[in-house]
Design a protein around this nucleic acid. Structure first.
Lengths: 226, 226
DNA sequence: CTCTAAAGTAAGCATCGATTACATGCAGCG
DNA sequence: CGCTGCATGTAATCGATGCTTACTTTAGAG
């Protein structure tokens, strides 16, 4: 019966001339496209189609496709940070190296769950990483969290003799390398079945963290308990 | 005077109707484009332009742009392998862990010298990696070389107690992560100046290899000597 | 020498990112 | 209330891309 009432106000029926939240809708659509077919399948036009606007409209909100992809990366980085924060919050132990492994768990969990989105976040050549406040903030948070854990571990004499700067770079590279190998399709090269990849990644990081400990056996016991 | 002699045979003057080696010429042009502006700036048409043929000609030799990029990756993987082989040949020591570091040196050297090309080689989602004999062969060579060194190190009791499969994955991930962080633009995040990146990468890998040694001090002396 | 098939060309299709000229309508002001 | 300005939308268009098709050239096998 109410075929077409008065297009009075916020009636979300046909489509008000002005979308109202196109910027957000574009990001949602672009993220969906990324998840469906990877960054390469993202098209400004298709995202506009899904948002129900013409192909030129998005450029009122994004200077370029790269700007849209930067927003997609911001979205991803926030989720990545949230995933890490979640694992940290769920980590009962206060042992810095145990918590470091929790950071890795949160990092891998999101990368594994959203591989194509993770690729957008990781590739800083396609987005304006250094020009995005949100990316710098969330990435900086992750970085600071790691550095604080390393600093605490050192202060508490939990680390083997080492250069903090070196192991920070090492740790980041190992985590990035593991996640990146996964999303770049390298894991088929190892015997691990696709479903075993997460465990292999965690195992590699766990063993690495153990190698950082002054008292490997002690940390092993703590990790086994947790 | 000899404005236009007889277009008799192999006269490389205007352009013989048949190119003669279009496939190779396309790969050369595509590699050049990759080095100049990254994979994203590669265009079948532009490569064809540089090879001096029409835009449709390349498709007689490559089923798709992805097939051309796969050939570009093959070219890169061969160079990567050659770089590693060179460092191994130049390595005087027979110590497996010293030679493992030489593998890393060869790997990093090429990645640093050809970052955009390296990205093409590393990203197996954009090329037909598992369908390319050349890629499988050269990548397999690198892999086998590493595995042999690990096996020798273990047989010669040079390794700390560890699971070979775990440290193989670790080592690969660390190397891939370091190289990938470089070409993905992550190094600005660390204090290292751009020119210091190679040293930082080597330092991280060196420290990692040291952490694998049963007798860290002994390996340290060997490395310092070399 | 002929004749086929590999390897070129030119033209065209659908699509893309981006721009332009124009249309709409909300907000703020008289 | 009515006017108006500006953010936000549309439609049309541009040049470029990947890829295909129909046709042309030419090398080389028989």
């Amino acid at each position: 019966m109410p075929a077409a009432p008065k297009p009075r106000r916020k009636a979300p029926e046909p489509r008000p001339y002005h979308h109202g939240a196109l910027r957000d809708a574009m990001i949602v659509a672009a993220v969906a496209l990324v998840e469906e077919g990877g960054a390469e399948s993202v098209t400004v036009r298709e995202a506009a189609r899904r948002a129900g606007v013409s192909s030129g409209a998005p450029f009122r909100h994004f200077a370029s496709k790269a700007a849209l992809m930067t927003a997609v990366a911001e979205e991803g980085m926030a989720k990545l940070r949230a995933s890490i924060a979640g694992k940290l919050a769920a980590c009962a132990s206060e042992h810095p190296l145990v918590r470091l492994l929790a950071v890795g768990d949160g990092y891998f969990a999101w990368a594994i769950a959203h591989p194509t989105h993770y690729r957008v976040v990781g590739d800083r050549t396609q987005i304006d990483f250094w020009g995005s406040e949100a990316l710098l903030r969330d990435n900086g948070w992750i970085r600071a969290e790691m550095l604080a854990l390393f600093a605490r571990a050192e202060k508490e004499k939990l680390l083997r003799p080492c250069d903090l700067r070196v192991i920070h770079l090492q740790c980041r590279s190992l985590a990035y390398g593991l996640a990146r190998m996964l999303v770049d399709g390298h894991f088929r090269e190892f015997d691990v079945s696709p479903k075993a990849a997460p465990a292999a990644m965690r195992g590699a990081l766990r063993d690495y963290v153990l190698s950082l400990a002054r008292d490997r056996a002690a940390l092993g016991r703590v990790l086994d308990a947790a």
